[in-house]
Design a binder for these strands. Sequence first.
DNA 1: CGACACATGTAACACGTTACATGATTTG
DNA 2: CAAATCATGTAACGTGTTACATGTGTCG
Lengths: 184, 184
Amino acid sequence: MAVREGLLVLLGEGPRHGYDLRNEFEARTGALWRLNSGQVYTTLERLERDGLAESSPDGDDASGRRRNYRLTAAGAEELRRWLGAHARDGELPRDDLVMKILLAASGDPRLAGEVISAHRHQLLERLQEVRREQRRVAGGMAARLVADVQIVRLEADLRWLDLCEQRLRDANRGGTDRPGRRES
Amino acid sequence: MAVREGLLVLLGEGPRHGYDLRNEFEARTGALWRLNSGQVYTTLERLERDGLAESSPDGDDASGRRRNYRLTAAGAEELRRWLGAHARDGELPRDDLVMKILLAASGDPRLAGEVISAHRHQLLERLQEVRREQRRVAGGMAARLVADVQIVRLEADLRWLDLCEQRLRDANRGGTDRPGRRES
DNA sequence: CGACACATGTAACACGTTACATGATTTG
DNA sequence: CAAATCATGTAACGTGTTACATGTGTCG
């Protein structure tokens, strides 16, 4: 549910048609987010269905193929709401890494150790890779910001893995938590 | 696509039926991940469809309601693959926050500033909230790890916001990047 | 002409989410 | 008996993803 809002942002700067939106979207996200053309149009349809945007044939277009989209009042309001700090941002961390560690950690402690170290290596590799790319290409602002966010997040996850290892060690050394199941 | 694999992990420890899986799943993720019962069963169906699990009525169950699921060889293999560091882990950061900053930053620089500061405040609040909870309840291992990952990630995003501000300031002060559009 | 960019769409599918339906068993 | 827990499922919907179809305009 971010493509939808992404288009909302672009439309917030003025009317545009689908093809244009797609290009802008990719350019601005530094090709981080590849949009299939189909998705643009289906998403635009949904925006229109929900009353956040409306469309009309583009008068400036000779061949009349283009369909121009613009925000409605409701769309502008929704955009404002989203750009502010709305609830869905504070989402819980539901991703593969967290899932693996949580489930593996509460099962076999040795498995947990293996999973942690496998991912530490992977994250370190990714980190080096991103840093290398960051130095090499030095593309536009978008690419730089994308590299930045990847770096800080990879570092965060690495720090988390260290923390996990430490906590598991402490627990196994005789904490109140048994490593087995049923810890409710 | 993490629920699916989550169930795979649990099944990897031995056969179980749906209701039990649901409870284990929630207990082990520290209620981070609330599963609707329906989702468990549909996901199990999909696992069976894809040949990763198979089921049969539970012989131990008197009333014969329970349906027992266990991994197939393919399922065990898939699990092993997933627990190692497989590709989908290195996913690109596609979330609301990144989307907002990227799109807003390449548009109106003043809007970018507002978005950044609004989210800095929100993230700080969430951070304090999580820290407070972490001290107060001190639940099981799962809850502790969840709190940990939230904290390190919130800190990472805060650091990123600072970085963004800095980069935008530098660019506006006369870098090579114009803040306007079309930076291809 | 042929290739490529422009421009819009349809169809099928994946997963996750929620609400709801349906019963059996246990327990106060 | 009534309520809670156990246990399994169906139905509908939302978004994201991919592949494919279709046609026009432009430029070498």
